[in-house]
């Protein structure tokens, strides 16, 4: 009897997944959230202890270090603003289109999928916070993945290293385009189908190209660590190490893409972005 029930559930889930969406989302909110909250206890306790027991002296030192870092980042932002203004002017000269500015929302990591076949994370933002399916997710170092499933207060992020995920990318040095496929391991992505004469080298930075419209263009995806070519194969196999810290990041950024606008009049250089957290100034 229960077996029939289970088969029935599977059948409904397969043919009419929308009928079970409510149940799934309710289960995620009522069961998964508290459970993952409990299992993340050690890391939270660690952070709490860190905050409670760090001495005054340490806090001052950290404050100083952060101030220094802030200064350096500020300088970079200024430089960025100038570059962006220049970029906008050049684009205007070329009669090229929009200047996009993405905004982002910080999301806390809740848990990681225990299934070794799947590379997924659960984050503490959901439909109630404005997250949507297919939304790209970053951390402070690069592209992490995109949201595949949502409930009211949680979202499931499919990592770029999942075997079912692929990101359209571009080598930032030469502009060569390709598709980075997940390998099922946290530290590798593969770019296949590049001919051996392609201009790609070890150490090249690979950024998202924005083709396909799922991921925003220009965010770092990874670094080329190895190029495999065995002569018999017509294509190279390029191994890329993701730049995002997929196994370490506690805080992730959900990116809201700006609507494509008409070319803005050259923005004044020093105006900071109006967004809550600007993705360019994300802290490491």
């Amino acid at each position: 009897m229960p077996a029939t029930l289970a088969l029935l559930l599977l059948g409904i889930g397969y043919y009419r997944p929308e009928l079970l969406a409510g149940t799934r989302s309710a289960l995620a909110d009522s069961m998964a959230r508290p459970l993952y909250w409990l299992t993340s206890f050690p890391s939270r306790a660690g952070r709490w202890a860190d905050e409670m027991f760090s001495s005054h002296q340490e806090l001052i030192e950290r404050n100083h270090a952060l101030e220094h870092e802030n200064l350096i980042l500020q300088r970079k932002v200024l430089q960025m603003a100038a570059l962006m203004a220049e970029n906008a002017r050049l684009k205007e000269l070329l009669n090229s289109t929009e200047m996009l500015e993405d905004s982002a929302l910080v999301a806390e990591l809740l848990g990681v999928s225990p299934d070794p076949r799947r590379q997924e994370m659960l984050v503490h933002r959901g439909r109630a916070d404005g997250a949507f399916e297919g939304q790209p997710v970053l951390d402070a170092f690069g592209l992490v993945g995109s949201i595949v499933e949502l409930s009211e207060h949680t979202a499931r992020v499919l990592l770029i290293t999942d075997t079912t995920n692929a990101v359209p990318v571009q080598v930032s040095r030469s502009g060569v385009r390709g598709i980075a496929e997940g390998s099922g391991r946290l530290d590798e992505l593969y770019i296949r189908n590049l001919v051996p004469t392609t201009d790609i080298k070890q150490g090249d930075l690979v950024v998202s190209s924005g083709l396909g419209g799922r991921y925003p263009p220009g965010y770092p995806v990874g670094e080329v660590v190895r190029i495999e070519y065995d002569g018999a194969d017509p294509f190279l196999r390029v191994v890329v190490r993701p730049s995002a810290q997929l196994d370490r990041s506690q805080q992730l950024l959900l990116v809201f893409r700006a609507e494509a606008q008409l070319p803005a009049p050259a923005p004044t250089p020093a105006t900071p972005a109006p967004a809550e957290t600007d993705s360019d100034a994300a802290e490491p």
Partner: peptide, 13 residues
Amino acid sequence: DGIEASPLGMHAL
């Protein structure tokens, strides 16, 4: 299944 977000009924079966 609900917690792991696997197809509902997979682990149950």
